[in-house]
Simulated assay, not measured.
Amino acid sequence: MSHALTFPVPSAVGSLDQYIQSVNRIPLLTEKEESDLARSLRDEGDVEAARKLVLSHLRVVVAIARGYLGYGLPHSDLIQEGNVGLMKAVKRFDPDRGVRLVSFAIHWIKAEIHEYIVKNWRLVKIATTKAQRKLFFNLRSMRRSSNTLQGDEVIAMAEHLGVKPEEVREMETRLSGGDVALEAGPDDDEERFAPIAYLADPHAEPSEVIAQRQYAHLQDEGLHTALAKLDDRSRTIVQRRWLADGEAATLHELAAEYGVSAERIRQIEAKAMQKMRSQLAELA
């Protein structure tokens, strides 16, 4: 089945702003166009139909990802994860259910973004159950004000989300608390003490220190060995993404440098990390 629709493809290179402008220029599908494309994909496995369905909904992913910027993760990475959810939704979409793709896709887009945030946000350590994840993503929106939650609010929220009141209080503390630098910054007053100056180390016994240093040395050698097993491109991507001294490179930045899509960079990264884990396991 052929389709007369033409779609401008977002460039694989360029800045995030250029990408967003590009996807916002892609025309929306009418209900009939969407239905025809979805049936072509479902009945004939038409890859081109799938591409058009995905492209026409990229702006939806951008809008949803923008709502999660408060968690401190790169907007481009949130968009990339949301795009994965969109592709899963397109694959599973049934036009005969009587709903538009956008309504069906929102769940899959948010699910992928939620999973990414939970895996990467440094403060989320208790969000391991479905109820706790629901608490994590709903606590801010359910609060009546920016003030500390009162007893009745805590109880009501706990009952609504199916968690314990103490879990609500702990999550609120995690979300409202800021990071404290372990060491004083270069501009801090000389007399100011950072935690590094007064926090005791219960494992500072000399033999343990030596053992830990030997273990760290072996781990460092193992990392270098694992990196050496990668091809040049994979090694550079892993180093830029996870081992950079400064700010880590985003998927879109690397995609622009290599002239490929952000999804391709993500695939290379995942394959490289899997290969490194196997190599480190052999050295353990």
Rank of each mutant, 00 (worst) to 15 (best):
H3G: 11
V9I: 15
G14Q: 06
D17L: 08
Q18A: 15
I20S: 04
V23N: 07
L28M: 11
L29G: 09
K32C: 09
E34Q: 15
R39C: 03
D43M: 12
E48F: 11
E48R: 14
L55K: 01
H57W: 05
R59P: 00
V61G: 07
I64F: 00
A65I: 01
G67L: 04
Y68V: 08
L69P: 00
Y71H: 08
G72Q: 11
L73H: 08
G82T: 00
G82D: 00
V84M: 11
M87C: 14
P95V: 05
G98A: 07
V102W: 03
F104A: 01
A111P: 00
E112Y: 01
I117R: 03
I117F: 02
V118A: 10
R122W: 07
I126V: 06
T128G: 07
T128E: 13
K130P: 00
R133Y: 03
R133H: 04
K134S: 13
K134N: 15
R143F: 07
R144W: 02
E153N: 05
V163Y: 04
V163W: 05
V168R: 04
L182V: 12
D189P: 01
D189T: 03
E191G: 14
F193V: 04
A194Q: 02
A194Y: 03
A197R: 13
E205P: 00
E208Q: 14
I210F: 07
R213D: 09
L218E: 12
D220N: 13
G222A: 12
L223C: 07
H224T: 09
L227V: 05
A228S: 15
L230F: 04
R233W: 00
R233H: 04
S234W: 05
R240C: 11
E247W: 01
L251A: 10
S261Y: 01
E263F: 09
E263K: 14
R264E: 14
R266I: 00
Q267H: 10
Q267V: 14
E269V: 02
A270E: 11
K271L: 10
A272C: 05
A272V: 06
K275D: 12
M276F: 06
A281C: 02
